[in-house]
């Protein structure tokens, strides 16, 4: 049997989460004795198979078809289910990205299998897979088992390490009927600029009510640019209309786990901590020395962010 990674590409580039999933798949395949396969779906994407080979895959199955140029949940789920029917894998891995969040459950329903979403760890022990998935946005962690034969999981971005390794790396075409998609994609608007996407950013600079107003985010953006970081926001700042909801970090926003999370003017409500508590290093900048953020920050700076952040930006520029 095999472990299958459903590769995620957008506009002809593979996303980082795919390498995280492949590296995890390889580790699990070594523990369970399965082979590692990748399924690559899209249009004009066959060339990406070489890039997948770097992460120890034994086989890349390619479905390259003009009808699959734009991702749609129903058509991609049909392709995936057909591949699962042929392959009968023990485990199928996806990223917990907007792509995987939608596709994995649709495919799981078609295959009629169990799926654990948003895993932060998966291990193979005593002949079974064990899945760790945070619940209540990380206020607790559930340990799950899934009754087979097929299991599916989506992986939280930025949590699983990327490890290159060797594999047989055969590339095969997978031929299947492709149903007409039930939805038509009529437009795509991607955020402009060079800032990384929030859920896959290594560094995130977030601002909250302490910024005093929407213009306060200019300071956060400048700091983010000095660090090559993404910009996040607390719920309070989103509710005040200072920032769009897509930037909200917390239980009713995005759950992130960057290497470095810089929280400026954020008090640290339980709702917010739930969304960023798994960050590797947290810096809190707040004028209120009693702010809850200091209870979780690795480095706490008490003071006026309007003075601290510009000085920090200057210092960071000196280093470059």
């Amino acid at each position: 049997m095999s472990i299958v990674v459903c590769a995620e590409q957008r506009d002809g580039s593979l996303r980082k989460i795919t390498f995280e999933a492949l590296s995890t798949g390889k580790r699990l395949a070594e523990a369970s004795g399965e082979t590692l396969k990748a399924l690559l779906i899209g249009n004009g994407i066959a060339g990406l198979a070489d890039e997948l080979k770097k992460y120890g895959v034994d086989e890349v199955a390619v479905v390259d078809n003009a009808a699959l140029g734009a991702y749609t949940a129903d058509a991609y789920a049909a392709v995936l289910a057909a591949y699962v029917a042929q392959e009968n894998p023990a485990l199928v891995l996806f990223g917990h990205s907007s792509f995987g969040k939608e596709l994995a459950p649709r495919a799981a329903a078609k295959v009629d299998c169990g799926l654990v979403s948003d895993c932060i760890d998966i291990n193979f022990a005593d002949g079974d897979y064990l899945f760790k998935h945070p619940v209540y946005a990380g206020k607790a962690i559930g340990n799950y088992k899934v009754a087979g034969p097929v299991r599916m999981a989506t992986l939280r971005p930025n949590v699983f390490p990327i490890v290159e390794s060797a594999g047989a790396g055969a590339v095969v075409n997978f031929a299947t009927d492709i149903p007409a998609a039930k939805v038509t994609v009529t437009g795509t608007m991607m955020a402009s600029g060079d800032r990384p996407e929030l859920t896959e950013a290594d560094i995130i600079c977030s601002g909250g009510r302490g910024l005093g107003g929407p213009e306060g985010f200019k300071l956060i953006e400048a700091l983010a640019d000095a660090l090559g970081a993404a910009v996040g926001s607390s719920r309070a700042a989103v509710d005040a209309g200072w920032r769009e909801h897509a930037a909200q970090v917390g239980q009713t926003g995005k759950v992130v786990s960057p290497n470095l999370y810089v929280a400026s003017g954020i008090s640290g409500a339980i709702q917010h901590l739930a969304g960023m508590g798994s960050s590797k290093v947290i810096v809190g900048i707040n004028k209120d020395g009693e702010a809850n953020i200091f209870n979780v920050a690795d480095y706490g700076v008490e003071g006026d962010l309007n003075k601290i952040i510009p000085a920090l930006i200057e210092k960071l520029k000196e280093l470059q």
Partner: peptide, 21 residues
């Protein structure tokens, strides 16, 4: 259910780190 919760646990508590003054 195909997915069974074996046990829930609380995440490791984060400790307050250094305060820079």
């Amino acid at each position: 259910s195909k997915v069974v919760l074996a046990a829930a646990e609380l995440p490791p508590a984060r400790k307050a780190g250094q305060r820079l003054t």
